[in-house]
């Protein structure tokens, strides 16, 4: 999967914007350092299951596209249909 992934520059991902913060952190743990670096208090927060990435960006006054680019640049190992060990590379 990575070969294909690496060819494209990370694009702002509209799907990411609509994930809840809790799902984002669960599906893409590599995003957690990005959140901390940007000063978001989402990791461990009780509100994380209820707020989307878009809403968090709004609450913190972040530029959504720039924020999404940062998040999209992290690896996404926990996609439900793929396993980390044996992904056939096309």
């Amino acid at each position: 999967m990575d070969a294909d992934h690496r060819r494209r520059p990370p694009q702002p991902d509209t799907n990411l914007a609509d994930l809840t913060m809790a799902d984002l952190m669960r599906l893409r743990p590599a995003c957690v350092p990005v959140l901390l670096r940007r000063g978001l208090a989402c990791p461990g927060c009780a509100m994380a299951p209820f707020m989307t990435v878009r809403e968090a960006a709004d609450a913190y006054g972040l530029d959504l596209d720039a924020f999404l680019s940062d998040l999209a640049a992290t690896p996404a190992p926990h996609t439900p249909t793929e396993s980390r060990e044996c992904t056939p590379t096309a």
Binding site: A41, C45, A46, M47, F50, M51, A56, D58, A59, Y60, G61
Partner: peptide, 22 residues
């Protein structure tokens, strides 16, 4: 109903204020 979840967390955790309208 918590209408501004982040604002409530900011009060609970003494987070630094961001924008006054948030």
């Amino acid at each position: 109903v918590i209408r501004k979840p982040h604002a409530l967390v900011a009060i609970a955790e003494d987070l630094p204020p961001l924008r006054p309208d948030r």
